[in-house]
């Protein structure tokens, strides 16, 4: 029945670990894009320009309700059709960054909306500009409220990176597929992928909670 080969496991280990670094890098870069772009999408929905608000709102809904894997294909293949060729990494980072930006914009929106109205009024009474109000008063308070959601999506983006293998980003899943194809052995590579994901995502929930508490303490809000 089950014939797990340790020698094969050790043989492919270096390649899998190397690919793990790529996975972590993909998640990190994608998340960095999502954090910034998500804030832009959230703030764009709070401007008084109705058409902009509407378009951004619908775009966020669209991105959130369609499959990421399809979006990855779309970004990767549509460029060449119009003469713009994107490398798998670039296309992948755009797609996954945009996808999670849409999710994070909802997290930020929730955070911003839970800052009490009185804080906005105090800013008006102190005659602060809109930018000062957001960056000095509202966002610092919305941040700790958003940390839990942001952390969940960090784990989420990490777990979605295997989808990047479909366009040839050399992350874990891609390495496992390649090894499986070369040696006609899928048990070890796919199992290693699963174990790596478990080892990284299991402790993350606790880490996120600890980080959340730390942010609150840092801002003197606990």
């Amino acid at each position: 029945m089950l014939d797990w080969r340790w020698d094969f496991t050790f043989e492919i280990m270096p390649r899998m670990l190397w690919a793990t670094l790529n996975t972590l890098m993909a998640a990190g870069i994608g998340y960095a894009i999502a954090i910034v772009l998500g804030l832009v999408l959230a703030l764009a929905q709070r401007t008084p320009y109705r058409p902009l608000t509407f378009v951004v709102r619908e775009a966020v809904e669209f991105i959130r309700s369609t499959p990421l894997v399809l979006q990855i294909f779309f970004v990767f293949y549509v460029g060449p059709q119009y003469g713009v060729t994107l490398s798998p990494w670039v296309a992948g980072m755009i797609a996954i960054g945009l996808h999670y930006a849409a999710y994070l914009s909802e997290v930020y929106r929730g955070g911003i909306e839970s800052v009490p109205k009185g804080q906005w009024e105090a800013c008006t009474a102190l005659n602060m500009s809109t930018a000062q109000t957001y960056f000095r008063i509202i966002i610092p308070q919305a941040l700790p409220l958003s940390v839990a959601g942001m952390g969940n999506y960090l784990v989420g983006i990490f777990k979605d990176t295997p989808m990047l293998s479909v366009i040839g980003v050399a992350e874990l899943m891609h390495a496992a597929n390649a090894i499986g194809g070369q040696h006609y052995r899928y048990l070890e590579p796919y199992t290693i992928v699963g174990v790596v994901f478990l080892l990284i995502s299991l402790p993350s929930a606790g880490l996120i909670r600890a980080f959340e508490a730390w942010v609150r303490r840092k801002l003197g809000m606990s």
Partner: peptide, 18 residues
Amino acid sequence: GTSLLVQLFWLFFVLPLF
């Protein structure tokens, strides 16, 4: 804790080995 894609491939490629 693991990805849907990993689970899918595992079920598809590894389960037959059992």
